[in-house]
Amino acid sequence: MASQGTKRSYEQMETDGERQNATEIRASVGKMIDGIGRFYIQMCTELKLSDYEGRLIQNSLTIERMVLSAFDERRNKYLEEHPSAGKDPKKTGGPIYKRVDRKWMRELVLYDKEEIRRIWRQANNGDDATAGLTHMMIWHSNLNDTTYQRTRALVRTGMDPRMCSLMQGSTLPRRSGAAGAAVKGVGTMVMELIRMIKRGINDRNFWRGENGRKTRSAYERMCNILKGKFQTAAQRAMMDQVRESRNPGNAEIEDLIFLARSALILRGSVAHKSCLPACVYGPAVASGYDFEKEGYSLVGIDPFKLLQNSQVYSLIRPNENPAHKSQLVWMACNSAAFEDLRVLSFIRGTKVSPRGKLSTRGVQIASNENMDAMESSTLELRSRYWAIRTRSGGNTNQQRASAGQISVQPAFSVQRNLPFDKPTIMAAFTGNTEGRTSDMRAEIIRMMEGAKPEEMSFQGRGVFELSDERAANPIVPSFDMSNEGSYFFGDNAEEYDN
């Protein structure tokens, strides 16, 4: 993207840094990872977990959730003011799984939030270390993106479920800051804005008074975040219109849905970061690795190297396929839920299948599930090659597409044709070009129609051997075009429920 120079890199967003050079960025990201790792080690000690239990991804998720809940100030305040039966607002906890007599047992633990905050700050040299908290939120978000298709949420806001490739980060909490905003897809931002506008339509006082002023500035800020994701002048001009509207209503909703559809071809720039579970960072720190000293990046080879040398386990339900569970977590670790499966298959070195073909449910185990038949197995999170994460949407291309997802959002900077089903997408653009945004709409449609099938995206960008740390010898991959490109292809993934 041309304006790259004016933006802070995501590592800076990730670490609240002012302008830093590459070495400083690597050190501050490393410091953040160190903090998460030290916190995780301490929690495993508190909970008396064995090494194996500490490497269980379900335990990692519970521990991450506990610290996120302990620092969720708004919710904590709300819980104190609106006490609900049987919930102690000062405590947080969740299921911890232990191996007892050759069987997995679930144990519900409860801790004072104050105590968890103390352990977290102690692991982070006394700081609140917001960057580390956001990092864990993005890992949870990436896992949700890989596990669930947001059909219901899309339909509720009037969008087409086939636009799911635009929904990265749709389950990120509001408090995820600049680093969170960077990884949100165009569809996620559109959905947040539509929800806001709908509230304004239904509630006369939404934009009024002292609160209304705050609401208005939040609305304009979200519009600017979305505008910054678009790469064409016409899309940005249309966002200006939406932002400046005196009284946002149905016309703005129409414009936003139009823009979301246009992003299936004229893709937005959305950041991709490899955020790993805390149970990967903990053992690495415990083994003596100093992330701050060595430096770390979320968008280069580092996460690949770390996963190459990590042992992570997962509980497996009786009829689940461990290899499929591994694929789910591998995609989440690489922030690749909406990437082209052919690119992923090449990088991973084994075939990556669409969601609907995987015999696996989510990673988390519900409290009512029976533990008797639970097994555990090693997650295979290694890769054959590594590639640089991208934040450009890439230019655009036609490809055989599917009944489910009709476009992709690249996660890796790797040369390819970008699949999208042009006739299906263009069919949504018939007729409606009147109104105050008509010239911009016409211009956007013209650009979409001009998108050429034979153009290559990320020209000359390749993948790298894991021994090639400096990215000196790019390998331009070859793809098996007979395979499906979309992950949520004609899909039956479970729906995400809060």
Rank of each mutant, 00 (worst) to 15 (best):
Q235D: 09
N125F: 01
T146N: 03
S269R: 10
R216M: 07
K31R: 02
D302R: 15
R152Y: 11
E11T: 02
K273L: 09
L358V: 14
I257H: 15
R121H: 14
D439P: 06
I63L: 01
L264H: 15
L193M: 03
I116S: 03
A179P: 06
K90A: 04
L379R: 15
I197D: 08
V183F: 02
S335I: 03
A337G: 02
R74H: 00
K198P: 06
G94N: 06
R384L: 00
C223Q: 12
L166P: 13
N397Q: 02
L166Y: 10
E252Q: 01
E320G: 13
N483W: 12
V343K: 08
E484G: 09
V155P: 07
R389N: 11
S50C: 00
C164E: 06
I347Q: 09
R204K: 08
E469S: 04
Q459W: 03
Y289R: 04
A332K: 06
R208Y: 06
S69I: 06
S176W: 11
E495D: 03
T188L: 07
D240A: 12
R162P: 04
L61T: 00
P410Q: 01
H82N: 00
V329R: 03
D240R: 03
S345H: 03
G30V: 05
L154S: 04
W330E: 10
N76A: 01
E64T: 05
I138A: 06
R213T: 09
S297V: 14
I197M: 04
I475R: 01
G249S: 10
N144C: 05
P161E: 12
M32W: 10
M456S: 09
I347T: 05
F206M: 14
G93L: 03
Q409I: 02
I265R: 04
P322N: 14
I257F: 01
V463A: 14
A472D: 12
T215P: 03
F346G: 00
S274C: 09
S170I: 08
P248T: 06
E81P: 13
M1C: 10
R38P: 01
I36Q: 07
T171H: 07
R446F: 05
S60K: 04
I57M: 06
L193F: 05
A178Y: 06
M447H: 02
E455Y: 08
K103G: 00
R246D: 07
C164T: 12
